[in-house]
Write a protein that binds this DNA or RNA. Structure first.
Lengths: 206, 206
DNA sequence: ACCACAGCCAAACCTGATTCAGTTCAAGGA
DNA sequence: TCCTTGAACTGAATCAGGTTTGGCTGTGGT
């Protein structure tokens, strides 16, 4: 789709380690609150070594956001694939969106918290490229849901209401989970998925 | 409730002007992206004069967030007051939440984008106080909606489902509007309110 | 007439991200 | 083996912005 960094990582590359550490730090302590240098410490390299892999702290953040968006876009496609009805597609899509491991939860939170970063252009080349990429993926994800809603309306499974607002609202309902959900809390992931699915169906059902 | 700054503004105070300018800048360009000094410029004072009114840039942000939360909490209370049924209360509450001017829209966006700031403690005295205040108000708002849902369930107007998840979801649905809504766009504020109200009712109705 | 204090400023300061000017090391020829 | 190349890395500056300091000014209250 887009000419993305397919820079086949060298064997000694710490890029993945850095991303992992950054996700933990950004997710647990917040992006602005975590010192870029502390990420370096966590990985066991000097602060400036980070710049070998990422152009800046923000560039790293954008990379994390893109990666999460990518995951969520492809997971949607895979889940929906081959479902019989829009209702089944919806069930599958919700499962795909919410049935994720702890690292993805962090990534989802990071993504949500910094969505506004995608709004304004970046100075630097690579950052701007990554931003554009992320924006494209956002559009992709929104489009996925919009499409699903429209399919549902067309088939008569869903009530005929404004698809744009509906899809945005569905996305918000799903993502809102990460605001309060905590692993090992009163509600299991399973519980939440169940509740969310039913809520969404109540929203769209004809 | 809390011993808040009731520091009866002096007549020459530029506090309100600063807040207004900050809301515009933070809202349009984003908090991290706007230079604190540029807010001073906008108001027509030197950068350090800002510190006469706010302890820090973050303190100003927290103040804006608190103010928005305060508005939203009291608006809810006022709207719900004297409604006959939970359904009517819900209608009134949605109207109160969404029928706001452009400045409040900006504030709402600012609030949402920096909710995570409320999670971790602040170093400085006044910032921490303001943070606590904001947290209290968040609890207040969440409680308002939770209560409404529980009243609705008790009266039989709303279906008997998990009130916690329901109320959080409702809040998310309402606040999600600010992500895409733009004054003068295809959909009027009226349209959006109508759609949102119906969506919420579909969600909770017995 | 005087004082206290809100309101303001220029210059110094500090923190944390970023750049500079290299050094190390492993792999692939010659 | 020796040499070259480029990925991986580093300590020491640099830079940008927010914050602190110390002091000046003008106004309202007594």
């Amino acid at each position: 789709m887009s000419t993305q960094t397919v820079t086949t990582e060298g064997p000694r590359s710490k890029r993945a380690l850095i991303l992992r550490a950054a996700i933990e730090s950004f997710g647990d302590d917040g992006f602005e609150h975590t010192k870029w240098a502390s990420v370096a410490d966590k990985v066991g390299i000097g602060q400036t070594a980070l710049y070998h892999y990422f152009e800046s702290k923000v560039h790293c953040l954008l990379t994390i956001m893109s990666s999460e968006l990518e995951r969520s876009a492809t997971a949607f496609a895979a889940a929906v694939e081959g479902q019989a009805t829009p209702t089944d597609e919806l069930r599958a899509a919700v499962k795909a969106a919410l049935d994720v491991g702890p690292r993805e939860v962090l990534q989802a939170r990071i993504l949500q918290s910094h969505m506004d970063l995608l709004a304004s252009p970046r100075q630097s080349e690579r950052e701007e490229a990554e931003r554009q990429h992320a924006r494209e993926l956002v559009r992709q994800v929104e489009h996925n849901w919009l499409d699903l809603v429209e399919r549902g309306i067309a088939s008569g499974d869903f009530a005929d209401r404004d698809a744009f607002q509906t899809s945005h609202m569905m996305l918000a309902m799903i993502l809102s989970v990460w605001r309060w959900y905590r692993e090992g809390g009163a509600l299991s992931n399973e519980d939440v998925r169940e509740f969310t699915t039913e809520a969404l169906l109540r929203l769209v059902r004809a």
